[in-house]
Amino acid sequence: MTTAPINLRYEGEGNFRVMSNYWAARADKDFVIGEVYKMVEHHDRSQISHNHYFAALGNAWSNLPDRLFEEFPTAEVLRKKLLIRAGYADERSIVCASKAEAQRVAAFIKPMDDYAVVTVREAVVRVYTAQSQSVKAMGAKPFQASKQAVLDALDDLLGVERGVTERSEAA
């Protein structure tokens, strides 16, 4: 299977054509003649949207109330923890033999990832890590949805009307 989209041009009447000899060679390498493939439209992520997101996060972090700096010592910690709160997280659970063992396991795991959220409930340790927002990991639509969810969570955290962080001066 191909690791990157192959550029095609729609020529009408149900016909698509590769854009150049390079893409034709890639198609020959990645696909098998006679096989049926499902095509989906791919939207490149906007660099403007990406830059806006990180500028808004940086601006909001630099204006956090003092009481929040211990929980969010950097803009990156803020972004990743808000991704987790917004549901853009991978969860791993470890079932331990006792509550005491769960506490020990959580204490052991916590320093391994500064960005992870580690919780203990009864004898179960749950580790939440933020999903990657890299271009490779997240296409345009999922990125936009996660961006909006984080900015909304940030507005909620700051106790301001939704959309305020998004419209900030630095953004």
Rank of each mutant, 00 (worst) to 15 (best):
R17W: 03
L82E: 06
Y53P: 09
I109R: 07
R85G: 10
K29P: 01
V160H: 01
A106E: 08
G58Y: 08
A116N: 02
R26P: 04
D30C: 13
R104G: 03
A107D: 12
Q47M: 08
S132G: 07
R67A: 15
K80G: 06
E70W: 10
E122N: 11
K147A: 01
G58T: 06
L154I: 13
F72Y: 15
P73F: 10
A89I: 08
D152G: 01
V77P: 00
Y128C: 01
E101K: 12
D114V: 13
L157A: 01
E76L: 08
N59I: 00
S62P: 02
W61P: 10
M1H: 04
R26T: 15
N51Q: 12
Y88E: 08
D156M: 02
T2C: 00
T74Y: 04
H42T: 03
Q133L: 15
A140K: 01
S20G: 10
R45C: 10
Y53A: 05
P111G: 12
Y10N: 10
R9V: 15
R162S: 10
A130M: 05
D113I: 02
S20Q: 06
R126A: 09
E70L: 15
S49M: 11
A102E: 05
R45V: 03
Y128I: 03
Y37C: 00
E161H: 04
V40S: 11
A107E: 12
R92W: 06
N7Q: 11
I48E: 14
D113G: 05
D90H: 03
L8Q: 05
A137S: 10
G58F: 06
R104P: 02
E76W: 09
T165M: 03
D44R: 13
M39D: 02
A86W: 12
N7G: 07
E161M: 09
D28A: 15
P73R: 06
A102Y: 07
A149N: 03
F72G: 11
S49G: 05
A171G: 14
D28C: 13
G87K: 11
H42L: 03
S146F: 00
G163Q: 07
D30N: 13
Y10L: 06
E169H: 14
D156L: 06
W23Q: 15
R9A: 12
S134Q: 02
A145N: 08
